[in-house]
Design a protein around this nucleic acid. Sequence first.
DNA 1: TAATTTTCTTGATTTAAATTAAGTTTTTTT
DNA 2: AAAAAAACTTAATTTAAATCAAGAAAATTA
Lengths: 246, 246
Amino acid sequence: MQLGGVIMTTKQTSKYHLFLSKIPLFKNINEQELIDFINLVKVKQYYRGEMVTFDSKEHAKCYVVYDGLFKLTRMDEKGEEIVITIADKRSTVSPMHFSKHYEICAEFVKNTTLLYFNKDEIDAFTAKNHQFAMNVIDFLAKSVQSLMLSAEVLQLKTAKEKVGWYMVQSKINNNFKLPYPKNLIAAYLGMKPESFSRALVQLKKDGIKVEDKVIVLDDINELCQYCDKVTGANCRSFKTLSCAHY
Amino acid sequence: MQLGGVIMTTKQTSKYHLFLSKIPLFKNINEQELIDFINLVKVKQYYRGEMVTFDSKEHAKCYVVYDGLFKLTRMDEKGEEIVITIADKRSTVSPMHFSKHYEICAEFVKNTTLLYFNKDEIDAFTAKNHQFAMNVIDFLAKSVQSLMLSAEVLQLKTAKEKVGWYMVQSKINNNFKLPYPKNLIAAYLGMKPESFSRALVQLKKDGIKVEDKVIVLDDINELCQYCDKVTGANCRSFKTLSCAHY
DNA sequence: TAATTTTCTTGATTTAAATTAAGTTTTTTT
DNA sequence: AAAAAAACTTAATTTAAATCAAGAAAATTA
């Protein structure tokens, strides 16, 4: 195993092995085949503020975030950007599956350690291991669904509804905590930080507060009106009496 | 092979076989294996104006459009809708890959004939035939990329730029013809028919006209400023002197 | 811990597209 | 071929969020 051209120790190998084996992309894979594959892993470090173009020519790879935070963005001529995804620990980003003409940009919000495999390695493993092929299919299908859901939120919802939707996701998937800085969430929701801030003021009037990134609710069900069914399916109260989808 | 419960003739079977064998999802597949699989095909007819919810419980299937036109949409409580995709002849739509809680709606714009396979059949073929697994991966990867591109267009571009972008796509991929009614294209671009109409007025001032759905240009390169790189890669003049991406 | 940078908030103003409204053209059905 | 429905266009008005501006709070760095 190599780190920037340097052979890594067995200790590091097993550290990454344990980490990667818990990633959905590698679930249910035969232990020995997985060990052999993960042996091919490479590591790259990026720093806060760095911007890298993930064109599929240079980056015909599949990345798993070991640690850190970055956003995948697209920019127009005027410097306006949209955030396609926010990636952090355990996120998988696979530019090898995009067209070589699709140039997506990674903007690193925190120092980030990426583990990666090359396209030929992934392709070979896909051919050899049917479970891995199924995992790749699952990963891409989830990406499709998440993009469809975002499209809906971005186009159909008001500023207040967008923030409400993000908060109910945070409540369900992240234990009542906004996982990222507000300006990053605002960009992901296709709005300006000022509008995000104003939406929070409106929500506060309904008893939905954010205190130091923690969501504080006067009424535990107040956020449910902003919930979508796919997100709701992970909620403890899904389709109980208090659920909006009941 | 069955059509609404009725056994079909060999003549119909071979008609669909020829059609399906040209679909990207079935490319490069061993002839006999493909014949055996396509034998499982089922057919369903939908009519203009019909609306069907493609929830993944009822529709754990993979559809290929044999003929017709429909839009995949999502609607909110107020009846506002977004168009996720427009599907016509040869399009593949695969609700079996979505969450069972994701309910996408198919609105049929024309009478439509859908060919389909059930999830268990697709899964079995994916396990048996590695090339088919690769084709499913390609199909999903293309869906991801197309959704990312739409997200960018919908969020970053003005009404005029959106229409220009759609027209340059039509120029390159559809021989200077708008393939669908304007209100459908407007909905796909996340705008109202009125705004679409006004954008056309603006473009006309730049020498870009639409006459009976045909794009007529004073200057052949006038649309190039609206082109994205992925679309441009299919253009005859890609990266020549006159290309915006040169 | 102080200094500096970045993030966040609030208010006034602008703006691009939606809405409302009404008429025209095209397509579909009878 | 006539009638009806759907699609399209143009104009006036409204609206939600962006922009502009300035200051407060929080996080980083020195």
